[in-house]
Simulated scan of single mutants.
Amino acid sequence: MELNETMAAVVTGGASGLGAATARALAAKGVKVALFDMNAEKGEALAAEIGGVFCKVNVTSDEDVDAGFEKARAAHGQERILVNCAGIGNAIKTASRSKEDGSVKHFPISAFDFVIQVNLVGTFRCIAKSAAGMLTLDPLDDSGARGAIVNTASVAAEDGQIGQAAYSASKAGVVGMTLPIARDLSRDGIRVNTILPGIFDTPLLAAAPQNVRDALGASVPFPQRLGQPDEYAKLALCMIETDYFNGEDVRLDGAIRMSPR
């Protein structure tokens, strides 16, 4: 798929971090980009920077997602590209005993469900609604290509750490649904791939003390540093532009394998 000014894209979680880097990379190719995010201040600023449009969207809401696609398509037309970067995480043990008084508690089910709803169901919601729109488009070429979707999982999908049961389950779900969705959409020329980032320098880590950031970077075999959002963006664009890239889950992690904690 050749990226150019005739193309439209939607990037969820597009106001910062991996999503913002991808939005900038797409815009640099001439693509018209719509940003789905909850942070209106950052989203509006980035949209102005790249000549895109911001849509305040909570990916757990059908109404929000529908309204977001409606606004994006009114501005840019039907998207051929969807990049799912919206996501959250938490760190709670399945069950634990208090060191102070010996009391026992378990992972609040509502907290577990919320992570699943955002990371897994939210990703699928955006895929399904975007793919339905892509089906209305004419193919780009004789191969029948219509569009491309890139999802964001995590290395935690394969080697989750202590306290990451919800996060790991949600990201493993994204990995697990990649191939079946790619197969679902294959006859209509829509490709689906997923990136599993390792430890990246995103807003999640921005507030961490420098010694913590340095230790995290040093834990990566090579290169011994945090991943940069533009490196994620490069792989996302490779997946979009390379027509034979389909149904794949690819780690982008400097060869790290996460320890238990």
Rank of each mutant, 00 (worst) to 15 (best):
residue 195 I to D: 12
residue 161 Q to P: 04
residue 208 A to W: 10
residue 161 Q to Y: 03
residue 211 N to R: 11
residue 182 A to N: 11
residue 149 I to F: 00
residue 195 I to M: 07
residue 209 P to C: 09
residue 193 N to W: 08
residue 247 G to A: 07
residue 182 A to Y: 08
residue 153 A to T: 01
residue 254 G to L: 11
residue 199 I to R: 11
residue 147 G to A: 02
residue 238 C to N: 12
residue 141 D to K: 04
residue 166 A to H: 13
residue 163 G to P: 04
residue 136 T to S: 14
residue 238 C to P: 00
residue 153 A to G: 04
residue 178 T to Y: 06
residue 255 A to L: 13
residue 144 G to L: 09
residue 153 A to S: 15
residue 208 A to E: 11
residue 138 D to A: 15
residue 180 P to K: 00
residue 211 N to F: 14
residue 166 A to I: 03
residue 134 M to Q: 11
residue 220 V to P: 02
residue 240 I to C: 04
residue 138 D to R: 14
residue 200 F to W: 05
residue 239 M to G: 08
residue 216 L to M: 15
residue 259 S to K: 14
residue 215 A to L: 06
residue 166 A to Q: 03
residue 194 T to W: 01
residue 137 L to C: 03
residue 134 M to L: 07
residue 196 L to F: 07
residue 153 A to F: 02
residue 214 D to C: 03
residue 234 K to Y: 08
residue 134 M to N: 05
residue 174 V to Q: 10
residue 196 L to T: 01
residue 177 M to W: 12
residue 258 M to D: 12
residue 218 A to Y: 04
residue 192 V to W: 07
residue 181 I to T: 13
residue 198 G to L: 04
residue 238 C to I: 05
residue 175 V to F: 04
residue 239 M to N: 04
residue 203 P to L: 02
residue 174 V to N: 09
residue 248 E to G: 01
residue 215 A to D: 07
residue 217 G to S: 10
residue 164 Q to F: 12
residue 143 S to I: 06
residue 186 S to K: 12
residue 239 M to L: 15
residue 252 L to A: 00
residue 145 A to R: 14
residue 197 P to H: 01
residue 242 T to S: 13
residue 203 P to S: 08
residue 170 S to F: 04
residue 166 A to E: 01
residue 185 L to N: 05
residue 180 P to T: 06
residue 161 Q to G: 08
residue 238 C to D: 09
residue 175 V to G: 05
residue 139 P to M: 02
residue 246 N to A: 09
residue 241 E to W: 02
residue 213 R to A: 01
residue 214 D to G: 02
residue 156 A to D: 11
residue 215 A to S: 14
residue 183 R to C: 05
residue 164 Q to N: 13
residue 173 G to S: 07
residue 176 G to S: 15
residue 209 P to D: 10
residue 145 A to T: 14
residue 216 L to I: 02
residue 231 E to G: 03
residue 257 R to M: 14
residue 256 I to D: 01
residue 174 V to H: 09
residue 166 A to C: 04
residue 244 Y to L: 10
residue 149 I to R: 11
residue 198 G to I: 07
residue 206 A to L: 01
residue 142 D to P: 06
residue 174 V to E: 00
residue 185 L to T: 09
residue 149 I to W: 05
residue 206 A to F: 02
